[in-house]
Simulated assay, not measured.
Amino acid sequence: MASVAPDWHLTRDLEVFLDCAGGFLRSEPALHTVQLTVTDALARQGSAAYGPKPPHFAWLTDRDGAVWATALRTPPYELNLTATAPEAADALAARLSEAGHALPGVNGPADTAAAFATAWERRTGATAQLTTNQRLYRLGTLTPPDPAPPGRARLATGDDHALVAQWHAEFSTATGGRPMRDPGRWAEGRIAHGGITFWETPDSTPVSMAGALPKVAGQIRIAPVYTPPALRGHGYAAAVTAAVSRAAQAAGADEVLLFTDLANPTSNALYQRIGYRPVRDFAVHTFRT
């Protein structure tokens, strides 16, 4: 990485942010998948896509004006930060703390997130705790389970709204907390763009679901994947994830991506069996005052 003068620019204007940093985000779609999908949703749906409070954006430029890193936050979510040097992470912590930002945490590449968390502790007196280790995977050669469990994949429709909302709430609880967004509105939005697929048994009972975000910069990210606890162990998650992955490829995605929690060896092994390969490790640090 070239020598960077840590000059962070802050804005609440999505158009300004994308005009300045959109090219940088699209330069590495896999590594920037979160910010690409978040800004796409904000562009299509407005700030209400994530909550009532306005989002915040930041980008780092060098002395020649080239963008080297970006950050965004859609309250109440954590700050999302792309890879950057420790001194640049420290400079961003300084800018945000001086501007009075109260952050619940940071999410980003593991080394960058750790550097920002350390800087935030030093500058604000908050306590940072590593709460989640994640791994980003990219689909290589898709290898669907053979044999597949009995049943088939199908897109969720408006008639499935209540179940999709329920399973989203259960997924959020199972992965560490309450839903940040209203489950009903989340379900409505996902169903509207064909973003939820069920695996259903031969008697048409849904037993697992997988989501897919809209294609942005050639990448589609699979999220979430959920099977109710009583229905696990039958291969439903692998089957529905393979079906959604195949659909993403058919939709023209250059890269099909997903995140896993490294604390869950079952899901990590499952995705690798069907063709996903590691790209980079990420981490979430939570801040407490």
Rank of each mutant, 00 (worst) to 15 (best):
A187G: 13
R181G: 09
R154E: 10
T175D: 05
E170M: 09
P183V: 06
T173N: 08
T157V: 06
P179F: 10
P147N: 10
T175E: 12
E170W: 05
I191P: 06
P147K: 06
G189N: 12
A153M: 08
G189I: 04
A162V: 12
V164H: 01
G151N: 05
W186L: 10
G189T: 04
R185F: 08
A162H: 11
L155Y: 13
G151Y: 09
A153L: 07
A153G: 12
H161M: 06
V164A: 04
M180W: 07
G189F: 04
D160T: 03
P179K: 01
T173K: 00
A169H: 09
D160M: 00
E170Q: 15
H168V: 01
R181T: 14
A165G: 06
R181E: 15
D182G: 11
A187L: 07
I191N: 03
D159Y: 06
E188Q: 14
E188N: 12
R185Q: 15
G151M: 02
G177V: 09
A156V: 00
A162T: 14
G177M: 05
M180R: 09
D146I: 09
G177Y: 03
A148W: 05
G184A: 11
I191D: 04
A162F: 07
P183N: 07
W167P: 01
P183M: 01
A162D: 15
D146Q: 13
E170V: 04
P149Q: 12
E170S: 11
A169L: 08
Q166L: 12
T175F: 07
R185S: 14
V164K: 00
W167C: 03
A165E: 03
D159C: 03
Q166F: 06
I191G: 05
A162K: 06
H161A: 11
A165R: 00
L155D: 15
R178A: 15
A174W: 02
D182W: 05
D160E: 07
A187S: 14
A156W: 00
G151W: 07
G184T: 13
R181I: 12
T157L: 00
E188K: 11
R190M: 08
A162W: 04
A153D: 14
A187T: 08
